[in-house]
């Protein structure tokens, strides 16, 4: 396991109104990983980022980044952290290149036009460098914010809902940008409520809800632990009961016997293999079918089931 780059220890935040937005969060982020913080709106994702980046004052707990305690050594830590906020907040009248150069200076680095050019090119913003930010599309504004966050060459980058409200193509573009970060060894913490995004990008996923970090695990491990295969086999003619050959499988008849439903496996692909076996058994038993619909459960399903379990537990 590589070194810890960020350590949250018992981090809590109670807003002045009394709302507990973070509740005893413990989390260690390792160097170079892409970590997705997944949770519904209002879960506390932005608050968590804010606490690390200096926008929110924690009520209790400690935050260490690069070994520096943020309560005391915030200058050293902040110099190495970049933040792309959830809202598209930029000085609309400023030209792109100047805005990015400003960010670099603000973080205490000497001007480096070549470096700024490289950043703008990597984000396909170079031909817009002299445009005022207000003249850009939403997707480009988001990239300007990323360029600003990268201008001081941070080792740790926060992306708060980087693809909220952008279309599929732009979302793919964002994934490509995160891949670039990964290649450069930048540690990325992103928040999202698009499960697809966490699934596509992250090495590890943390699920947060009502300020509590419910679960943190490697993406694959989480899938293996909680993943399911679900298959629906439409039959050529209805069955009144399950044939004995299928008794060993987690399967049931539905829709008045016109369809078989399989739910099993564990997210490692075992389910798919079983579905294949079931089709062979069906043919062996002389049962004809018209179609098969197989679906691997996504993080979304995991998420929903996790939250469901939580909900069922008495308070």
């Amino acid at each position: 396991m590589s070194e810890a780059i960020l350590e949250l220890d018992g981090l809590s935040k109670v807003y002045p109104g009394g709302l507990k937005a973070l509740d005893d969060v413990n989390l260690t982020i390792r160097k170079g990983e892409i970590f997705a913080l997944l949770g519904p709106n209002g879960a506390g994702k932005t608050t968590l980022i804010g606490a690390v980046c200096g926008l929110v004052r924690p009520t209790s707990g400690t935050i260490r980044a690069f070994g520096h305690d943020l309560a005391t050594d915030w200058r050293k830590a902040r110099a190495r952290i970049g933040l792309v906020p959830q809202e598209l907040s930029t000085d609309m009248f400023e030209p792109v290149q100047r805005a990015v150069a400003y960010s670099r200076g603000l973080f205490g680095l000497a001007p480096d036009p070549a470096r700024i050019e490289e950043i703008l090119r990597s984000l396909s913003l170079w031909d817009k460098k002299d445009e005022r930010i207000m003249a850009l599309s939403g997707g480009m504004k988001r990239r300007v914010l990323i360029a600003k966050a990268l201008a001081h060459e941070p080792d740790l980058l926060f992306l708060d809902e980087p693809t909220a409200g952008v279309d599929v193509e732009l979302r793919k573009g964002m994934w490509a940008i995160i891949d670039q970060m990964r290649a450069k060894g930048v540690t990325v913490i992103l928040t999202t409520h698009y499960i697809e995004e966490a699934e596509e990008m992250a090495d590890r996923v943390g699920i947060i809800r009502k300020g509590q970090l419910i679960m943190v695990d490697e993406k694959e491990a989480m899938m293996a632990r909680l993943g399911r295969t679900e298959a629906h086999i439409s039959l050529a003619s209805p069955l009144s009961e399950l044939p004995p050959a299928l008794a060993q499988y987690p399967i049931e008849l539905e829709e008045g016997g016109t369809s078989l439903c399989y739910r099993g496996g564990d997210g490692t692909g075992r389910g798919k293999a079983e579905v294949a076996d079931i089709t062979k058994a069906l043919i062996g038993s002389g049962i004809d079918y018209k179609g098969i619909d197989v679906r691997e459960s996504s993080l979304e399903d995991i998420f929903v089931s996790l939250l469901g379990e939580e909900e069922e537990q008495p308070a």
Binding site: L83, L106, F107
Partner: peptide
């Protein structure tokens, strides 16, 4: 836009 100032060293 103040987020940037607040998150800077």
């Amino acid at each position: 836009t103040i987020y940037e100032l607040l998150s800077a060293p």
